[in-house]
Every structure is written in C-alpha cells, then in structure tokens.
Amino acid sequence: MSDGPVSVTLKGSDISAPKSFAHRVSSRLYASAKLRLRLLVSAPLLWLALVYVAALLALFVTAFWTMDSFTGEIRPDWNLDNFIQLFTNSLYQTVTLRTLGIALMVTVVDILIALPIAFFMAKVASPRMRGILVISILMPLWASYLVKAYAWRSVLSNEGILQWLLRPLGLDTPGYSLVGAALTLGYIWLPYVILPIYTGLEKVPQNILEASSDLGAKTWSTLRLIVFPMLLPAIAAGSIFAFSLTMGDYITINIVGGATQMLGNLVYTNVGIANNLPMAAAIAMIPIAIMFIYLSVIRKTGALDNL
C-alpha cells in the first residue's frame, strides 16, 4: 500500500472523530423541528393512549363478556347480554334518569350560586376581600370529600342545623333523600364551578363593562348580553365539572341519599359485591355515553373553542 490512501483515510477520520453520537443526535434534532416535537410529545401521548384510551377500550370490551356466577371467573365469550339487560330492565332506566336528574339539578344550582359569588369576587370585592374569598372557596377543597359528606349528614339530620333553621318557617329538613344528596353534591362541587367562572370573569376587562353601561345598557342587559356570552366557556367548564363529578358519584348518595341509588352505586355493587365486572363495565358505559353527548352539545355551542 502506498502512503496516499492511508493519509486520505486519516483525513476522513480526523473530520468525523470529534462528532460523538450525542453530538450527531443533537445536530439532527436541531435541524428538524418536527422530530423534536414528536419526541417531546411521544411520552405523554403514549401515557394518554395507555391510561385513557386503552383503559376505556378495555372497559368497553369487558362489557361484552360474562361472569361465571358460581366461581366468579370472567369468561371472554362475546355476547350482548349485559347491554340487553341495560335496555330491557327498567331498573337501569330508572336509575339512569335519576342520576341524570340529580346531575342536572346540581349543575344548574351550582351555576346559579356560583355566578353572583364569582361576580362579586371578580368585579366588586376589594383586592384584600378577593383574596379572603378565594381562600375561603379553596379551603373546602383541602378537606376530605368524606368529611364534607358526613358534615352534611349531620346538617341534614333530624337534629341538624337545617331542621333548626327551617322549623320556625314551618318546614322540615329534606333529610337523607335525593334533595339532600343534591344539596350535598352541590356544596361539594361548588368550588369547581366558582373557580372557572371567577377566572372567566377576571378575564372580562373592566372597560368592556363600562362600554356597555356607557352605551346605555342597564346592569341586567350588560350581564345578559355581554358578561354571560363572554362567560359561556367558563360556565361550560364549570358545568362539566359539576355534571361529570355528580354523574360518577356513589359515595355521597350512600351517606346522605337515604334509600336511593345512582349509577355509581350499581357499578359499585357489581364490582364490589357481585364481582360482576362485565356488568359493571356495561353500566359504566351509560355515564360515559351521557358525558359524550353532553360534551358534544357543549362543543356545538362553540364554548369549548374558547377554553
């Protein structure tokens, strides 16, 4: 071999040698924004796919299986029995309607309560007062869900504060009932409704309200024509919280709901007592379907676009 080719080879390695693997990866990443983005989102996306999509799919698939009632084994033989049950047995219709009713009631009541509170916080209260209010609204979130439900159990009881307040008016506490459950759920989810509406209101500039008033709109018109439409996405966000969280509840209804049950209780009974996971999965499809419809309706109004 002559010297020529050797020296050429050396030259080539001289150039490439300092470029480590990491260096080359970095260069490649620097050059391609698309690749960077893909790498960045792939981990969370994988997580999303596994945790949410796969879990939902698994749930859906399970709903078509059956449980051997004696041994408690789940048998993956495909059939529609569970869904036939759902559609033919009046139990499921009754409970679905009841759950839907409570969820709507809680949502509407929460929005009605949250609007003035949020408005006061965002537009009326002094900064100091606002801070106190935000903390006092957040405070209950730090307490356990169960503590709050049991507190309401005591409030609603025959010897509770509600009875004491209502007796002079000739009324009685709603006690442990659907109304009691709706009150309690309304209380528990209220911060989740107030906070997005408050944030939404804070985003409404003061001069927009002044402009409306300046153009001759009385307070009510301003609220109806300006504030409410601008707040719609925030209200929608709040309603999603109150509605979906109520749809899935099975604990509060047990504590203050008296002898009634919601869809969550049926799921719980099928998982925890009957060990009938396929039936539980089928029942769980009901609130999922309802939430799906609810979100589609909200999406149609365009409220989600502004979120």
């Binding site: 449980m67 009634t260 009957a274």
Partner: peptide, 12 residues
Amino acid sequence: SEWTTAWQEIKG
C-alpha cells in the same frame, strides 16, 4: 349473583 341482581332491583 341472582340475589345481587334482586338486591339492586329492590333498591331501585
């Protein structure tokens, strides 16, 4: 399992 189904129906 039949008792469980029955119990759900009883509670309505």
